[in-house]
Amino acid sequence: MDHFTLKVKRSTRGQDSDSTQAVYSVPMVAESMSVLDAMLWARGNLDSTLAFRCACRVGMCGTCGVRINGREGLACRTLVSTEIKYSGLVINVEPLRHLPVVRDLVTDPGNFYRRLTDVIPSFQPADLDAAPVAIKPDSSERLTINPHRECIYCGLCYSACSMAGEDREFLGPAAFNRAFALVSDSRDEAGTERMKAVDGRSGIWSCHTIFECTAVCPKGIPITQAIQGLKRKHFFRKVQSLFRLGRPS
């Protein structure tokens, strides 16, 4: 059976000084073998101390996010055969960036979630007594929001984003995506607060449309478009407030 080499960056408590690279020779047990399968095989047969996160194994939960051969991806959705085709018989796995490493490939997503809460990520209904608001499935509002509802909060975009690397306070693509989805929802009433939250230096204005987030999103969400949408909404609000001659937008 063909073997390939799995290299995993290992460390304890994220101390880069004592990070090592574990090298495992893993057999290709099936054509459909994923990087997660490889990690599970290594852990089960070679080294039971290897630490990583996983849950659903089918790309729904977003738990197994890692960097494979220098690029963010879900371990369960990345096929070994595809990686071998592009990068040869060595597969390098590292933890996600911009988050503290707990051990090996396990990161502490605290900051990622904190940035999310900054944008009020839950739906705030406008008027609870009004008749149910119907947004037709083919309405432009619904079609605009649809792709952005797919987020599984896997954190790949946050890891890929250069700006998140520069500024730990940066809200990040996932937060902006969620903010956009809710701000575009006509039934929600917290739009103004969210627009304020994404304003400022650690907000949307630090996004330089590098598109790294959109490139790695496992759900194919056009994240940069959401951020651009937020910038445009800001622009229109400024224009509106100018015409209202100083009344707060």
């Binding site: 449309t209 598109f211 056009p222 940069t224 478009q225 651009q228 910038k231 445009r232």
Partner: peptide, 13 residues
């Protein structure tokens, strides 16, 4: 960049 900001050609950036 300006085009992308205006929403033009984002998919072909």
């Amino acid at each position: 960049v300006i085009l992308i900001d205006l929403g033009v050609g984002v998919t072909r950036q």
